[in-house]
Design a protein around this nucleic acid. Structure first.
Lengths: 130, 130
DNA sequence: TTCTTTGCAAAGCGTTTGCACTAGA
DNA sequence: TCTAGTGCAAACGCTTTGCAAAGAA
């Protein structure tokens, strides 16, 4: 692809994402980056986030409820979205990669993979509801 | 919820969705409805589509690539999205509902279900690529 | 009549883009 | 130097919304 040059801003975005498990939106990333680079623009954040998610260094989570979220952990793992507080959690669970094979069985085409989001109510919301 | 009154437009939207396997976007629905109701507005289409997807009569598919798609088949089934032509196909495959149980095993909260989209290359795109 | 739905147009929201300038190699 | 990245602001695409008029019960 194109030549990449170092950029403080991009580095800082990667750093921030690597250090949080919060799955922030682009706007949240922007808010945090502004503490370090007060002049950074939202456009730069978007440009770098899409660049990083294209190279696979960052994961883009499109849960279809408004804005996309980003995950600094590039290793394959699953996500849980709380219906109540909308928080996104990482799931530590056994692999479900076999479902791709199941999908392939009766399909005239090539199923390469899948995107799965689990939903329900998270622990702290269950607690609040009591 | 609220009281529902009959509406020709809503009925026509349901009818159109029930008669296609194309998983159209709101705009596509609008284009088709205009052939029957030339004065129908995009707002009406959006209002009815979200109403119908709330009651469960219609399925909303948010694949995160721009616009949402709608499916007139309310029975649980899985979808395949072609990376090349972006078409959405219904998958006839064995149930994968057990993955919800797998997700629940080590999670402090309540996993109720999941949304899964399979992706890859569809049959007709594979054919074209030859 | 009463309350829902409509058409229209404007606004909203997240995201992308054009451009002149800055900064990394 | 040369090219990639930046800040800014405007534009974009999809969706939602306010409002007065129309339509169903």
């Amino acid at each position: 692809m194109a030549n990449l040059k170092f950029s403080r801003q991009r580095e800082s975005i990667k750093e921030y994402l690597a250090g949080t498990t919060e799955h922030p939106t682009a706007d949240t990333v922007y808010m945090h980056l502004r503490e370090v680079y007060p002049n950074i623009s939202l456009g730069t954040v978007y440009r770098n986030l899409s660049l990083l998610s294209n190279t696979g260094e960052v994961l883009k989570i499109s849960c279809g409820d408004g804005s996309d979220r980003f995950d600094g952990n590039p290793n394959p793992h699953n996500h849980f979205i709380c219906k109540q507080c909308n928080h996104v959690y990482d799931l530590e669970m056994d692999s479900i990669e076999h479902i791709t094979k199941i999908a392939n069985e009766n399909f005239t085409g090539e199923v390469e993979g899948h995107i799965t989001y689990f939903y329900g109510t998270c622990g702290s919301c269950l607690e609040k509801n009591k």
